[in-house]
Design a protein around this nucleic acid. Structure first.
Lengths: 135, 135
DNA sequence: AATTACTGTAACAAAGGTTATTACAGAATA
DNA sequence: TATTCTGTAATAACCTTTGTTACAGTAATT
């Protein structure tokens, strides 16, 4: 994962948690994260599709958590924003080479285990616990 | 890590291990991994700078493992090829926002722990063990 | 000595993926 | 009806990674 989507998503969720009770606009949140409002809306829509965020359209609308922060695990966030395995992508090796023919299968196993341990680690933290670190 | 350097590096090291005793050329290895020979030379030079690979210049030269495969941990490989934390980069949030001001510190802690568990997992495998999977 | 076959390395091009930007339709409130 | 939001698409800008080309340096071979 070369990008900053995890950081962005967790920042957004933390804002929603810290300001629980109010509806936050994408413009406001974009100002805190320092990214474009349209990017915020896209990411929040994505998180919303997975139940972590709810939204209200129209004037006076905005975003809120879609479920209690104690039920949002950081592993959920990771799963939602990262489409590629942690260890990166694989190549398209030469099938005529004994190593090339088999390497992707073995890399696949390894990548899978790496994702597992990462998810296990992130699964130990909820948004509520993470949010306690903030004043 | 959005890229394929880990896969490339491990493929190269596996080739060197499987064909231990001979010197392999960057052209040959590039043919197995299916990437450009110059890319192979760059990556092998990098692995060599960290002691995992030795090289011999000039005619009849090539590459070999720099130390026994039982002493090469996959965590070493990961450390060498990945300059960014697994969870990705962070943003440059607004310091005027309470959350924005602190988020990168807390993300930093999280990223550090994520890297730790990943390294611990990869540290359980050596190149020798990984290489047993191949015919 | 000259040739050959390699690595080491730099410079630059190409490709791919991520984020920014702009724009506007649609929804809900005032 | 005007306003203020989200939802969403299209496109541009940017950045990172990989590919490509080229050539200097080194060591064996002839």
């Amino acid at each position: 994962m070369p990008n900053g989507r995890f950081a962005t998503a967790l920042h957004l969720l933390t804002l929603l948690h810290v300001k629980e009770g109010e509806l936050l606009s994408s413009d406001y949140m974009a100002g805190s994260v320092n990214v474009n409002p349209a990017v915020v809306r896209k990411e929040l829509k994505n998180l919303g599709d997975h139940g972590l965020v709810s939204s209200k359209e129209g004037r006076g609308g905005g975003y809120a958590l879609g479920k209690p922060a104690v039920q949002i695990y950081l592993s959920d966030v990771y799963r939602i924003v990262s489409e590629r395995p942690v260890l990166g992508r694989t190549n398209d090796p030469n099938p005529d080479c004994p190593v090339g023919k088999q390497i992707n299968d073995h890399l696949g196993d390894l990548y899978h285990r790496a994702d597992e341990v990462l998810l296990a680690e992130l699964g130990q933290l909820t948004l509520e616990v993470f949010g306690r670190k903030f004043d």
